[in-house]
Structure formats: C-alpha cells, structure tokens
C-alpha cells in the first residue's frame, strides 16, 4: 500500500516544530520514522501534516549531566550503541539496544522516538521506567521533566501534550552495587518479545538489597511489579507464588504470538533467568 497524502514540513528549529504542532491537532512528529512510516504506508495512520524534526541540530547530544546520562531525542539507536560516553557509563544500554529490531532500523530509529511512541512491547520505555529516568519534553510553555513511571498512561498513550515534543531522556547513573539485568523471550531474533523483563537491582546475586522489576510486552504499558519484587526479596524464587503475585499485579494482554497465560508464565520464569545473570 501507499501512504495517503499529507503535507511535509521540515522544522528549522524546535520552536518551529512546537508552533506547528500546537496549531494542527492532526500534525504528527517525524523523527526516525521507523514506527511511523509502516503505519503511513499501510494507511493505518493518515495525518494531515508531518513535522520532520530530524534535521534540528543539537537534539542528538549524548552527555553526562548531574549524575545522569542525557540522551538527546534524535540520537539514533546506532549513535547510542557506538557512543563512548554510553559505553563508559551505561554499558548495559548497548546490550539492550541490540535487542531492538535490526541494524538498518537502528540506524534510523531514534531514542526519543521509541520513548515517545510508548509501544508496550518496546524495550526502551521499560528501561526508562526501570531506571527511574526523567523524560524531558519541550512545549509552548517551555520545558518540563516527567518521571518515566508517570509518562506512560496506557496503550501508546503518554502524558505528553499536543504542543510538546520529547527532547531527551535523563538516565540516573548507577550507584555502587547497582545493576541493570534484563532478558526477553522472542519467537525470532529482533522481533517484539512475547515477554521481557528489565530488573534494577541493588546488591549481588546472593544478597539483593533492593529490586525493581519492569516487564514489557506484557500489558498496555511498561508493567512495574513492586509487590512481586518484594515477594522475591522475602522468599526467593518460588514459581507458583511469583506467578500468583504477577497475575494479580499485571493485567496481561495476549497477542498473536502468546496468550496472556503464556505471557504470565514467561514473565515468571524471566525473573529467574534475569536475576541469574547477576554476579555473585
């Protein structure tokens, strides 16, 4: 299929993009386009106007800023993966991004795009929630910072306003003894997962002091399972108990490749798989 007609506007700067977006309800931001273009090509989305922000300079910066790693919205997944600051300060980010689609998609797909799109099956929104990241958005009233856990409301739904654009994400740097471990189960390499888990752990394998579990591809947004994490801290890995807990804590939504029952099972075994990756 071919996309329906739309007008195309190459934004000259951030303010330009914000202004157009504020004026046109149906205008859509185009960054890397790796999720938007398929929707356009299949006429699942027919916006009146695309605002291309990809040429705006300065939005792809990656830097350390007040104990956080800031990743500019327009940094592509490939940019992030090959960035030395990321490698030195947040090496797990590179391994997570290896699970995102395929190289040619990562060359074009942007960090901010993935965060803003809010696909419940995507890795980065879950990572942002797991790491307590701040999402920086810019709008007519200036910038605001939204904690990732408050950013995602539901299926492809975020707190971002019509006039706002994600400009960057601030990931807190890991403290001494803090680890990010993760895994996902896919039918095929690079596919969206049947279920995935990112765990933010304080402590070592045999001595976990604090634990945050964030699942993806399980429900309608990144699913935080605090009660289940607590249960794990109290009892260790008990499949039945953890499964029960997850079942009450997360509203599992089945898809073509895995039923909700399957997702619940995979989420449970992922706790074991992921935490076994911690060093002793």
């Amino acid at each position: 299929m071919k996309a329906a007609d739309f007008s195309y506007h190459e934004a000259v700067n951030l303010q330009d993009a914000i202004n157009i977006k504020a004026q046109d309800d149906e205008a859509v931001i185009l960054a890397g386009g790796q999720s938007l273009l398929p929707a356009l090509n299949m006429r699942l989305s027919s916006p009146t106007c695309l605002i291309d922000i990809s040429k705006i300079s300065g939005l792809n910066e990656i830097k350390i800023e007040e104990h956080t790693l800031f990743i500019g919205a327009l940094a592509t997944h490939s940019d992030v993966m090959s960035n030395k600051t990321v490698k030195d300060n947040m090496p797990y980010m590179i391994d997570i991004l290896k699970m995102v689609a395929h190289p040619a998609i990562r060359n074009k797909g942007t960090h901010g795009g993935s965060i803003a799109y809010g696909d419940p099956a995507a890795e980065l929104p879950a990572l942002a929630v797991a790491t307590n990241a701040e999402i920086i958005v810019s709008g007519q009233n200036g910038d605001r910072s939204i904690n990732a856990k408050d950013f995602y409301l539901g299926l492809f739904e975020t707190t971002i306003n019509q006039d706002e654009i994600v400009v960057g994400i601030k990931y807190p740097l890991l403290k001494q003894g803090q680890n990010i471990v993760f895994d996902e189960v896919c039918r095929r390499h690079g596919d969206y997962a049947m279920a995935g888990l990112i765990a933010n752990v304080m402590g070592s394998k045999n001595d976990i002091k604090d634990l945050k579990l964030v699942f993806f591809a399980t429900g309608d947004k990144p699913d935080v399972a605090d009660k289940t994490a607590e249960l794990y801290l109290d009892n260790g890995y008990d499949y039945d108990k953890l499964k029960n807990s997850l079942s009450s804590e997360i509203d599992f939504a089945g898809d073509l490749n895995s039923s909700s029952e399957m997702k619940l099972h995979l989420a449970t075994v992922l706790i074991k798989k992921v935490l076994s990756k911690l060093e002793i």
């Binding site: 299929m1 195309y8 190459e10 185009l30 386009g33 790796q34 273009l37 398929p38 090509n41 299949m42 695309l50 291309d52 490939s78 689609a101 395929h102 190289p103 040619a104 998609i105 060359n107 074009k108």
Partner: peptide, 25 residues
C-alpha cells in the same frame, strides 16, 4: 513496505537504511 523484509535496504550518508521507511523528502 514496513521495514520487515530488508529488500529495500540502501546506504544513506554511509549507513544502511530501509528506503521504504524513509520519505523521499
């Protein structure tokens, strides 16, 4: 035309991209 098959992959400024997922503009 949705980036899933890779047949349209070309080089843009030195990097591989799916040309069905990039507007000509």
């Amino acid at each position: 035309e949705q980036g899933a098959c890779g047949a349209c992959t070309i080089e843009m400024d030195g990097k591989a991209v799916r040309s069905c997922l990039v507007l000509a503009s």
